[in-house]
């Protein structure tokens, strides 16, 4: 019985992977994103200046001396205070990506569990859980984040908390809807008929079947999180100096653009735009690859 060779099955995941890699825009997005992530982690080893060092020669005359150049070691130029923009952009990239990924991560974790439980258990539990979500959603969340940052002080932790608190609401709704349609499928009924316990059904039958939707939504959520963080930083409430993020850098760059220091805006903006486009393309590709209606 054991000496026969078994035929390897083609899972829906491997099917989806094949479809994803046939999508040129998605693959390009994936490559661009990987490159940016790699640059943000490897790039600092090539930096001449750190992100907090001030180049006193340049300070005060950034428009003339702070130009991007290889000789001075300021590859992307300097900011108004004479700090190296190359190092600052890389460091900002790390912070912004982290905010995006952690925000999306919290939303995946909390939203998926909350949504499946509400959808699968149903009845009054569902009513209470989803009305809670409705109430939380009705609170203007930018306002809450700003209040949190003002009251408890500006810190990355508080930023994560604020973003994490609210990012899972949409996810839980999507997941609940998906669960509702899944729980009446015959394979779930079959599992119930053989006596599989409810937590096992959720883990084994419900969650694997909605991971596709969750993955798509999560990739689209990362840029949304980055945008939120950038907006908060743009308002001046984001991460604290000497740390920075894309939003803060873009805000500074936009503020000094009339002094002929356009590189201060362009450098972070390029990273920002490429990353957002990559995420949207990847999300699009994932949706096409995983959409069950396409099958």
């Amino acid at each position: 019985m054991n000496n026969i060779t078994e035929v390897k099955g083609r899972s829906l995941w491997s099917d989806a992977r094949r479809r994803f890699f046939q999508n040129k825009a998605a693959v390009a997005g994936l490559i661009a994103l990987t490159t940016i992530v790699l640059i943000s982690f490897i790039g600092p080893y090539f930096a001449v200046w750190s992100n907090e060092e001030i180049d006193w020669d340049v300070m005060g005359s950034a428009a003339t001396l702070g130009m991007p150049s290889f000789e001075s070691g300021h590859y992307f130029g300097t900011d108004d205070l004479g700090r190296d923009l190359y190092s600052r952009v890389l460091q900002g990239t790390r912070v912004s990506l982290m905010v995006g990924v952690i925000g999306a991560g919290i939303s995946v974790l909390v939203g998926t569990i909350y949504g499946t439980v509400a959808g699968y258990v149903g009845g009054r539990t569902d009513q209470i859980m989803m009305r809670t979500v409705d109430i939380l959603m009705s609170i203007p969340f930018m306002f809450v984040i700003i209040l949190l940052l003002v009251v408890f002080g500006r810190s990355i932790g508080m930023l994560f908390l604020g973003i994490g608190l609210l990012s899972w609401l949409d996810m839980s709704r999507i997941v609940r809807g998906q669960t509702l349609s899944l729980k009446n499928k015959e394979f779930v009924e079959a599992a119930r008929a053989t006596g599989v316990s409810t937590p096992t059904i959720i883990m084994r039958h419900i969650i694997p079947n909605l991971l596709g939707i969750v993955a798509i939504y999560a990739t689209l959520l990362v840029p949304a999180m980055i945008l939120t963080e950038s907006f908060i930083s743009f308002l001046g409430l984001g991460v604290q100096e000497p740390l920075t993020s894309w939003g803060a850098l873009i805000s500074e760059g936009a503020g000094t653009i009339r002094y002929d220091t356009e590189w201060q805006l362009i450098a972070p903006l390029i990273f920002f735009v490429i990353t957002l486009f990559s995420f949207f393309f990847i999300g699009d590709g994932l949706r096409d690859a995983l959409d069950p209606k396409d099958r």
């Binding site: 099955g9 009924e189 079959a190 084994r204």
Partner: peptide, 14 residues
Amino acid sequence: FQDPLASLNPRMTA
């Protein structure tokens, strides 16, 4: 069950 395909979880092997 009635629907042979629907009664099998698409993410699990036979």
